[in-house]
Design a protein around this nucleic acid. Structure first.
Lengths: 238, 238
DNA sequence: CCCGGCCAGTGATTCAGATCACACACCGAT
DNA sequence: ATCGGTGTGTGATCTGAATCACTGGCCGGG
């Protein structure tokens, strides 16, 4: 089943869950055709770098399948992960629109497929179709919000427990059961979780222990069960 | 002296330093006229709130004169200042474009003047003129960058000294002398500085003492002299 | 003039999380 | 089965910033 009207950049991405909302989906016929001319699709293996922090920006990537880790590193080697992107996300948009180098590194966490749109083509495309410029603005605004949320977690949460609880809650938004519990596959190492919430690997380990002891979470192999959202929410504001 | 072609939203803002770069300046004739119809100007006293975190977004403010403190507060009452805006900055744009409540509180730090553009008018305006949508996109992208920078300071800098040095450097970018020193008026309390770099008032006091002792800065009344940028840069990466 | 409120400076104490240092579990390759 | 690498769990120690608790300076108003 395809959009009733116009082509869709994600037509070949069956797993894209919310195509309606995404940038460059459901455009008018002309815009959609133009889009198909300027985009190009490729498949990337696990570990592939779509782009690297500091590189001159070449264009944007629209992720079809797979997950991408966005991170930034200081000179001393400390790394933070700013976001885990998945299907439908647009990567590198800020850098392209403002003609700056990529500000983060984008690495495939699992094999996946992405559409590439070169910088010049996209800028032209935006000038040609006001609706596209508007979509881009909305996407940028969404990017800003996630950055802003990151600032709140990093700046306002006092303890690692709080940040950790917040992270777990953000994960459990997808697929929550009626009893307040939810399940998800955990494919991040403790190290990486530490890089998300800004703490060390050891502390993450201890947090897991602590939360397991308090019956907040449960772990079987790679699946993580969040036992009660309410309890976690209490920790966040505590 | 006015722009050679078209009206300018900042025409009555003599002190705006870089009007060329700013949103909604130097538009085409038609766009500029339209803009003049939808904007309205007002003067605000010190302490006035342009908007408050969580309020439904009504429109954007283009600041003409004065400084504005953008901040966000957690339920427990902890506050962080995300940005100090000055002439030319566009406030509330993200909230308006994505139709969300304002994510920060905007408070006048000194009396000043601002143009207001209602939400609906702006959205219409963007759809009518592609150039406007493009400008908005670029402005949003700039907003994102400052947010991103904030993330880097908050997430990557380990010690308060590092964050403090970083802040001082960001202040000294304007007006640096040939000998690497620079001077500026300091109208923030230690408390507020703490809210910018995410530490306590006491720590800021101690940092000032320490930096004075190390001959990095010098204070006479409300003017702060930064004695050597290189030395500060050393601290940042150390 | 003195008073009250806000801001700045500084010591003493405390404590949570970083750091260091292991031991072990798991998995794929040889 | 053995081995190396990677990821995990947990103790012991250390440290730097938060917190508490003052003092004193400055300014504006009665």
């Amino acid at each position: 089943m395809r959009a009733p009207y116009g082509l869709n950049i994600l037509d070949n991405c069956v797993s894209c869950p919310h195509r309606q909302e995404h940038l460059l989906c459901n455009l008018g016929l002309q815009a959609a055709q133009r889009l198909n001319e300027i985009k190009s699709t490729a498949v990337y293996p696990k570990g592939a770098m779509l782009f690297i922090e500091g590189q001159q920006s070449r264009g944007v990537f629209v992720l079809c399948t797979g997950k991408v880790k966005l991170s930034t590193t200081s000179r001393e080697g400390k790394t933070i992960i700013t976001k885990i992107s998945d299907a439908g996300d647009v990567l590198g948009l800020n850098a392209v629109v403002s003609a700056q180098p990529y500000e983060v590194t984008a690495e495939m966490m699992e094999p996946g497929q992405a559409n590439f749109i070169p910088r010049e083509s996209l800028m032209h495309f935006m000038k040609e179709f006001p609706e596209v410029a508007l979509r881009v603005a909305q996407q940028l605004s969404r990017n800003y919000y996630t950055a802003y949320e990151e600032i709140r977690t990093l700046g306002l949460a006092t303890s690692p427990s709080e940040k950790f609880a917040k992270l777990l809650l953000s994960w459990s938004t997808t697929s929550t059961q009626s009893d307040g519990s939810s399940q998800l596959r955990l494919n991040l190492t403790h190290e990486e979780i530490g890089e998300i919430i800004g703490t060390t690997r050891e502390t993450v380990s201890r947090l897991f222990s602590e939360f397991r002891k308090k019956q907040l979470v449960q772990i079987k192999g790679a699946t993580l069960v969040i036992r009660s959202r309410p309890a976690l929410e209490k920790i966040v504001q505590s």
